[in-house]
């Protein structure tokens, strides 16, 4: 299952955990657990939506608001 997940991700693109779960015939929660596993073994990296990339932007206080930082959890390969 982990291999299938990795194969899906390696095909490229933007994936949503619910869609990945449907493709693998499992639940989004198990896909998230596998994504965290892949992150621990170094195959994926988490991405923080608001980091120092916003430095210097007058709107950074907006980006760092709770509503935005809670919005999505992201990983990248």
């Amino acid at each position: 299952m982990l291999e299938k997940l990795l194969a899906e991700i390696r095909s490229g693109g933007t994936f949503e955990t619910g869609v990945l779960a449907a493709r693998l015939g499992t639940t989004p929660a198990l896909v998230e657990a596998m994504l965290e596993h892949l992150q621990r073994i170094g195959h994926l990296r988490p991405y923080e939506t608001c980091n120092d990339a916003c430095g210097g932007c007058s709107l950074k206080s907006i980006c760092k608001s709770k509503a935005r930082t809670d919005a999505v959890r992201l990983w990248q390969i």
């Binding site: 991700i9 390696r10 095909s11 490229g12 693109g13 933007t14 994936f15 949503e16 955990t17 619910g18 990945l20 989004p28 998230e32 994504l35 994926l44 608001s65 709770k66 509503a67 809670d70 919005a71 999505v72 959890r73 992201l74 990983w75 990248q76 390969i77």
Partner: peptide, 18 residues
């Protein structure tokens, strides 16, 4: 090609304060 995976947030009842 590279990949990006996101975990969609659940829909919430909007919070007036936020």
């Amino acid at each position: 090609r590279s990949a990006f995976i996101m975990e969609m947030p659940l829909y919430h009842i909007p919070n007036a304060r936020t």
